[in-house]
Amino acid sequence: MKMLEALPIELQEKICSFLDGATLLRATCVSTQWNRIISGLQMVWRQASLREGFGTPVKDWKLHYVTCVRLLQRLKKGKAFQHRHFAPKCFQCSDVRDVVFWNGCILAGIKKCIRVWRVEDLKPAAVFDVPYEIFCLSVSFNNHVLGVGHYDGAITTWLLDEVEVRASLLQCYVGHRDNVVCLCVAPELNLMCSGSRDSFSVRSHASSMNKGCPIEWKTHNQLLEEGFTMFRMELEMKVSFSIGTKVSFSGVAGST
């Protein structure tokens, strides 16, 4: 029992690094001393976490590993999520067009306004009015910009204030001739993409958004053709490199 205690920490880490997470947890149950020693080997628990795909940087890697394992087990049993019935009396369920999560809040697009509730207590936090009827919502990855797709084909972007829970209009974009059904806003990439029922997909640079003009219009068929062309060019380059001869392929997108 005292053999592990007598070893220097370098050898403790070396020996325990050969064990998987489940074995490490069983080893902590041997005795109080083993639990104290093994639980303190942060590099070992970090390695075990990364091996299982639990790679978020944390201070206590053992706690992180145990938490992730328990959550994974609950996911497999369908018990990882808590469900709460939420039906505010200020609107009918049929009025809700889209719902997104932002900074601990629920944002719901309802006709020409966006209502905000805090997740922790489901109490109203704010209401944003928008100029056109809402079809879809999208929050950027950095949680700073909200994109709103409208029924008439317009798109508006809003700067979100996390402290005061409010939104300020950034820009309105026009170009689509029908409902904007999907939207992705990525200011960190200087890019915004949108899709509409008019069979067009639009890609816009944030630098050109001051004028509200898209930089590129493509139909869905054009996007498929573009994807096939890029695949064909990549394949030609790989084959040419492998045999040292220029090779060209011909075909039509969607053909076998």
Rank of each mutant, 00 (worst) to 15 (best):
P187H: 04
V96N: 01
E13M: 08
D198S: 07
L63N: 11
E188K: 10
S49P: 01
A48R: 02
S138P: 01
L223W: 03
Q73Y: 07
V44Y: 00
E52D: 06
L75F: 05
A48C: 08
L169I: 03
K211I: 14
F128H: 15
G55Q: 10
S31R: 04
V66A: 06
V58Q: 07
N143A: 11
W34M: 07
V202T: 08
V239L: 13
K76W: 05
P187I: 09
K59V: 15
S248P: 03
V174W: 12
E5M: 04
H176Y: 01
R46S: 05
S250N: 14
P124Q: 03
R203F: 09
N179T: 11
S201A: 10
K211V: 15
W158D: 00
E133K: 04
D121L: 03
E120L: 11
D121T: 12
V165W: 06
A186H: 04
L50Q: 12
W158F: 01
K218R: 11
M233W: 14
H144A: 11
G244Y: 06
Q12T: 00
T156V: 06
G21M: 05
F228N: 07
I9R: 07
T32R: 13
G212S: 09
S138R: 01
R97S: 09
M192N: 04
V69D: 04
F141D: 06
L159C: 07
F86K: 05
A154S: 15
F128G: 02
L75P: 00
K14Q: 14
K111E: 12
H64E: 10
G21A: 02
V181K: 01
T67E: 12
P214S: 15
V165P: 03
R26D: 02
F228G: 01
C16A: 13
